[in-house]
């Protein structure tokens, strides 16, 4: 048949784009390449005479699936960080360091502002946010109207309490030191004694 050679050449594009899709790391880039794979697959199906399959591939495989996957990836690959705004804005260097660590894991940072410390605590307990950025002891004590005591340098750093164990491990391994203090087993050590039960319940969820 005279049409054989170009059919072979076009069909060879399908495994080529499929390999590109499998080797892609970034989920958003993979979505775009999935669209390319769908376009090439629709071409191959149409050339082999399956016009209905080609139309279904273009409608469902390319348009519907990558749109739904884009929404799913966008809502799941993010770390929700609860912050106290505007009275205790976390330092920009800490946010930059967090974004850099998350970017290496193809995630993004989403800031969720809260008005006061109790609302932040309740949100962390209700699993609305993955992590909470609590200001250092000096700021917290002035907010709690307690007497100021001499503080070490580590206490002045903003505290970062992460609810998800995997995120905590990543941050402990990769976040540069000197930016923040990760709270692990005894959360909210700036809390008063009446709040110990709340802290224990949060610790149990870790």
């Amino acid at each position: 048949m005279p049409e054989d050679w170009y059919m072979v050449a076009i069909a060879a594009l399908l495994p080529l784009t499929a390999c590109m899709l499998v080797l892609q790391v970034n989920p958003y880039h993979a979505l775009v390449i999935r669209g390319i794979l769908g376009a090439v697959a629709a071409l191959v199906y149409a050339l082999f005479g399956a016009a209905d399959v080609a139309l279904t591939e273009a409608l469902v495989g390319t348009m519907l699936s990558i749109t739904l996957y884009a929404v799913a990836v966008r809502s799941s690959m993010s770390m929700r960080l609860g912050v106290l705004e505007p009275q205790a804005d976390p330092p920009e260097s800490l946010l930059m360091a967090l974004r850099e660590v998350l970017r290496q894991h193809q995630m993004r940072l989403e800031r969720v502002p809260y008005a006061n410390l109790s609302a932040l605590r309740a949100a962390l307990e209700a699993q609305e946010i993955h992590a909470a950025c609590i200001p250092g002891l000096s700021v917290a004590q002035s907010m709690a109207e307690e007497e100021s005591t001499p503080l070490s340098q580590a206490d002045r750093l903003p505290h970062l309490q992460i609810r998800v164990r995997r995120l905590h491990d990543i941050m402990q391994a990769e976040l540069p030191p000197g930016q923040t203090r990760l709270i692990d087993t005894a959360p909210f050590n700036l809390a008063k004694s009446s709040d110990i039960s709340t802290a224990d319940s949060i610790g149990g969820q870790l």
Binding site: G35, A39, A42, A46, A51, A58, T62, M63, T67, A70
Partner: peptide, 21 residues
């Protein structure tokens, strides 16, 4: 006919994905 439909649908998918991104 299928080619014409795919030509229009491919651009629609592109615009949807571009808006989400």
């Amino acid at each position: 006919v299928v080619g014409v439909l795919i030509l229009s649908v491919g651009n629609a998918a592109l615009m949807l994905l571009a808006h989400v991104l």
